[in-house]
């Protein structure tokens, strides 16, 4: 027998926050996935919004590409505000 497909579940815990990955559920379609995710991941009122997406639709970066993808950002400190020195008179920006 064919298995129920897997869906990844993302929950927005509060208004104003992003959806965050919490795990997966099995369901036959997206509608059922939402219901199952609601029952499984928001039993203690953990969420105000749910996204589900078939796990097979997720494209992930490959761990082997980690250096190429993420290391170059490490020496680009000028992307961070603390890189820029401000005179003491301008204490907030």
């Amino acid at each position: 027998m064919k298995h129920w497909p897997l869906y990844e579940v993302f929950i927005r815990s509060k208004h104003g926050l992003s959806h965050k990955h919490v795990g997966s559920v099995h369901a036959t379609d997206a509608k059922m996935a939402i219901d199952n995710a609601r029952d499984l991941y928001t039993r203690r009122s953990e969420g105000v919004s749910i996204w589900v997406i078939p796990s097979s639709e997720i494209t992930a970066s490959i761990p082997g590409d980690k250096e190429a993808l993420f290391d170059p950002a490490e020496d680009k400190v000028y992307r961070h505000p603390s890189f820029y020195k401000l005179p003491a008179e301008v204490d907030q920006m």
């Binding site: 559920v25 099995h26 369901a27 219901d35 199952n36 029952d39 499984l40 039993r43």
Partner: peptide, 11 residues
């Protein structure tokens, strides 16, 4: 019939 239903029914 499925674990998901186990939770739903109990809920």
């Amino acid at each position: 019939p499925a674990l998901e239903e186990e939770i739903a029914i109990m809920n």
